[in-house]
Every structure is written in structure tokens, then in C-alpha cells.
Amino acid sequence: MSDHRHDHDHENAHDRPLSGPALRVKALESLLVEKGLIDPKTLDEIVDTYEHRVGPRNGARVVARAWVDAAFRERLLADATAAVAEFGFIEPHAEDMVAVENTPAVRNLVVCSLCSCYPWPVLGLPPAWYKSDAYRARAVVDPRGVLKAFGEDIPEDVEVRVWDSTAEMRYLVVPERPAATEGWSEEALAALVTRDSMVGVGTAKRPEGGA
């Protein structure tokens, strides 16, 4: 196993340009290119898309629209795959999306207990903690404990729903709209929507100076 990577990997890279997983990736890639199964240019385009063109700002736009547009909110909760497609983000990979709405009585939490399925078109690629063993295992068995670790103390009378993602089904949490944002534009509201609030481990930001 080549598990001895550490934070100064890029320094070692100067001593030994190819080692461990980088060497294995290079070998696999060169074979796949020779067999005509991948094109390095296509790989570069995929990487560029996921590094620069998708991310939680996409999801924030979806949530903000649901907050201001009741008809869109209904479409989103009824068929999130179709409602999100209205924005023209990247195509969903092979999965359907489901939007789940937080209310004063219900908090939703998203996990992928088996690997790390995540709604890429609206949130980009997942943060490290989402992929960690600890989150994957704890979110299902102790969601209130997980929420507490993220600074969210959920009252006993609030129901916590855990949504375990699969290859076919990804979830987007629609957090509650913060108070004192009446009349705000979609764009201003989107700035309040955090990645964590759309995974369910946080809430939307409160307006500055607000309660």
C-alpha cells in the first residue's frame, strides 16, 4: 500500500516525480489512451468543469429561487431533477435529484453511508468531511450528535430526517429562509445559502445586523 502520503507531497514530487498513486494513475491513463478509451483533452475538460464550473453557488441559486418563487418551490419539491434542469447546469450524471425542505419542525441531513454520492450539478464535489469514515458512519446512527458537532443543537421536538444517497438518488436540502429578508432579491438571498446548509449540517446565514 502506498498510504504514506503527507502534506508535503508536492515537495517529494521533486525528488521522485512519479510514485504511489500518481505512478499508478499515469500507467493506467497511458494504457487507456493507447486503447482509444480516453482522450487526455477530454480529461482536462472534465477536470476544468469540476474545478471551476460547478460548486455550491449553483445550489444557492436554486434555493434562493425556491424562497422567492412559490411555483418554482413546488416544482422543485415535486421533481428536483426537472426543476434544477431549468438552470442549465451540467447534466446530472446518472441520477435523480430530490429536494427536501427544512421547516421549523423538520431538519434534513444528507449523507452517503456507502461511498460519497453527492449532488454534483448543484454542490460540486464534496468536502473532505463528507467523504470521511466518521461522517458516513455517524450521520446515519447519530444524526443529532453530528449536527451538534457542526454547532447545531436540535431541540427534541424537531424531527431529524437522514437521507442516505445512492448512485441513483442525490439529495439537496432547502434550508429555511432567514428572518428579516423580506423583499430581498434572489441574488442577495443566494449569498446567504451555504454549502453546509444544503447538505443539512448548517443553516442559511442570517442577514448582517439581523437577529
Binding site: V25, I38, T42, L43, I46, V47, Y50
Partner: peptide, 10 residues
């Protein structure tokens, strides 16, 4: 990034 992209492309 390369490993990620190879899986998507295959």
C-alpha cells in the same frame, strides 16, 4: 483529478 476524470469518461 486525473483519476476522477478517467472514471467519468469510462
Amino acid at each position: 483529478a486525473q483519476a476522477f476524470a478517467m472514471a467519468l469518461e469510462l
